[in-house]
């Protein structure tokens, strides 16, 4: 009975992660502004970090920890680069 509960929890977890990732992909594709897309891709990356962690919990190993560390440390570089070079003409109002 115990393992059934745990499988149900992990199936729910999988569905939730998929839905969250799809939602951010939708935002990346639809925009409308550059800022929206950057924020959404940031969420996608964090979702990836979390998914790597959950996979470790599920399969009971710790080999992906370096991946998590590297991703967590470098995740911002992309958003900061974009934020530095974004200009008013990239806003949603300029190109609706």
């Amino acid at each position: 009975m115990n393992s059934v509960v745990i499988s149900v929890i992990y199936i729910t977890v999988g569905v939730m992660f998929t839905a969250g990732a799809l939602a951010s992909v939708y935002r990346v594709v639809r925009g409308p502004s550059l800022i929206d897309r950057v924020i959404a891709s940031d969420v996608l990356l964090t979702t990836l970090i979390l998914a790597a962690g959950v996979e470790m919990v599920y399969n009971g190993h710790t080999r992906s920890i370096p991946l998590m560390v590297a991703l967590a440390a470098t995740a911002v570089l992309g958003s900061i680069a974009v934020a530095r070079h974004v200009s008013p003409k990239d806003s949603a109002k300029a190109n609706p």
Partner: peptide
Amino acid sequence: IVSAVLVLGGAFLTLAAGVGL
């Protein structure tokens, strides 16, 4: 079970982030 519930919490917050987006 504790770790499964913790993972569930993390998944819920991820889902909420996507929906909020």
